[in-house]
Design a protein around this nucleic acid. Structure first.
Length: 280
DNA sequence: CGTACACCCTGGCCGC
DNA sequence: TGCGGCCAGGGTGTAC
């Protein structure tokens, strides 16, 4: 159930398991993920060495030694399950919704598991990556240097949509999802219904660090759970985390000094959780 | 052009 | 226990 911090955690796990190693075998058990897999998907990956694994927004970007790039997206329910020979004598039996299996040169195995099949994989080339349809229109990384209060104010200028929707727009900032938008707005005291164009000045000064904060703390939590999970069952893609607003309808607002209650509303078809006392 | 909404798919949970 | 309805963390295509 991945948002940016979960994808970052998955990337870190995959790096450990795969970077610098050869894909000895790739098996796609069904060709129809969110989009059809590219032609000869297995053959184009087999025998390739993995040079580097990056994250861009919620995409996992795998650079191969022949200039190809494997792009993976976990969608809503995608996970990666790791297995290595030192964990158990035999790999666990394949389960329903285990769609793609990557076998790595050191004998370990990575399995893409995705019940809802909103996840997808694509192949492109290094020199076409930036202009690829998935990447061409992405805004800056929320944890990068470009994403500043000034940048945010400018890019929200004139937008009459609610700030909640604007922050989910990947052209404004790339990689924010429903949970962390709720959390960052809660932390910075901004109403999700406020018009995007009115988030500038002091509000933008509060919102940008709040976004960084919630993401960084979640990545830290993921990092520590990664160690635990990898030891237990190698399952990447989900970790326990406690939210201040998300999923807490009817509970007291946790903000220090606020006596409000968390409400749930629907904005552009998605749940928004917020405190209508301190978020203005 | 920007915004709003349906849709892709499966599973879990809740109420009857 | 069984079943229908509702919900879910994403991204895209279409209609206005």
């Amino acid at each position: 159930m991945p948002e940016l911090p979960e994808v970052e955690t998955v990337c870190r796990g995959l790096r450990t398991a795969m970077e610098g190693r050869v894909l000895t075998q790739v098996t796609a058990r069904r060709p129809d993920l969110r989009f059809p897999l590219p032609p000869d998907f297995e053959g184009r990956l087999r025998g390739r060495r993995i040079e580097r694994i990056d994250r861009r927004a919620k995409y996992i970007v795998v650079h191969l030694d022949d200039g190809q790039v494997l792009i993976m997206h976990l969608g809503m329910s995608g996970r990666m399950n790791l297995w290595a020979p030192q964990v158990s004598a035999e790999p666990p039996p394949l389960a329903t919704h285990d769609h793609v299996i990557f076998e790595v040169g050191n004998g370990s195995r990575v399995v893409f598991h995705d019940p809802r099949r909103f996840g997808f994989m694509a192949l492109t080339r290094e020199d076409e990556l930036a202009s690829h349809p998935y990447f061409a229109h992405l805004g800056p990384e929320p944890l990068g240097d470009i994403f500043t209060p000034d940048y945010l104010s400018q890019s929200l200028d004139g937008k009459r949509t609610p700030i909640k929707a604007a922050l989910l727009d990947q052209r404004v900032v790339a990689g924010l999802g429903n949970i962390y938008v709720c959390e960052a707005l809660h932390m910075s005291g901004i109403s999700p219904r406020r018009l995007a164009c009115s988030v500038s000045g002091q509000r933008a000064e509060r919102l940008v660090p709040a976004i960084r904060d919630v993401l960084e703390r979640a990545i830290q939590a993921g990092g520590s759970s990664l160690r635990d999970y990898a030891q237990v069952d190698g399952e990447l893609g989900y970790f326990q985390h406690s939210w201040q607003a998300y999923g807490r309808e009817g509970e007291p607002c946790g903000q220090p000094g606020c006596s409000g209650t968390i409400s749930r509303i629907v904005q552009s078809g998605r749940s928004t959780f917020f405190c209508n006392k301190h978020q203005r």
